[in-house]
Design a protein around this nucleic acid. Structure first.
Lengths: 123, 123
DNA sequence: GCCATCGGTTACCTCGTGGTGACCAGGGCA
DNA sequence: TGCCCTGGTCACCACGAGGTAACCGATGGC
């Protein structure tokens, strides 16, 4: 707690915001959903169709967690069959932008990582 | 596959570099170890003492994975009891820098997330 | 002789994440 | 009448990440 400018990695306790976010983006679906929603609002089943392999349960759970953390807004419309639209919040947008940098890093350095793996395997 | 400039989130298959890195930084210890090593080389047990709560097994496994991916270099010295030093690579440094941005985001927006959670709970 | 330290590996067990499939309501449609 | 659409929830199950503890071999100190 001596220096507040740039906290020296303290995610040892579960209260830590860093640990919290790493768990969030480390899960299987959040980043995928965030990426899709950052392009525009989508309904539940539209989202479901655009994320191949996701189950109803996991999409529902992921969206609930994201809504809870203020990353997306949920709005239900009393239409013919009830329609629910999910919209990304400014907070969610800023997270998406940050995650995008990680994605950029990954795509840019993927070859180096794969090369390292090949080197390691044939040692 | 039409646009290669900024791949549109394709981590549906395990080969995807993004999925690979998200899994890596989403695990419990890699980010912690990366943060410590980015400040300078450390020996196995020194690292172990500086990461509270980590077990010998997990530190060993984490370091092995990081070495495999070219994030750290391992050098053993035939000293009195064998000494092993772990050094971060330039690749590891660049990942650490990218992760640091995520950490910065988390610390900067933690209050907003916690506020959203409070709002959600008392709805 | 005994114990600690170095850096690990191994067996075993627990617990959480995520997958599968059934079920819910109401209305449109053949 | 029966089936599909909407957006979910719930019960059950499997797998893998991670924790715990024992053990390794060589050496130095008491």
């Amino acid at each position: 707690m001596a220096d507040e400018s740039l906290p020296p990695w303290n995610p040892y306790d579960p209260d830590c915001p860093t640990r919290m976010m790493l768990d969030r983006i480390g899960d299987k679906w959040t980043v995928l959903v965030l990426g899709l929603l950052s392009a525009g609002p989508l309904r539940f089943n539209a989202l479901r169709r655009q994320v191949p392999g996701i189950s109803q349960k996991m999409l529902s759970q992921t969206l609930k967690d994201m809504e809870r953390d203020g990353l997306v807004d949920r709005s239900a419309f009393a239409t013919v069959p009830v329609t629910v639209e999910y919209t990304i919040t400014p907070l969610g947008q800023s997270l998406a932008a940050t995650v995008a940098q990680l994605v950029t890093w990954a795509t840019r350095h993927a070859d180096q990582v794969l090369a390292a793996r090949a080197r390691y395997q044939s040692r």
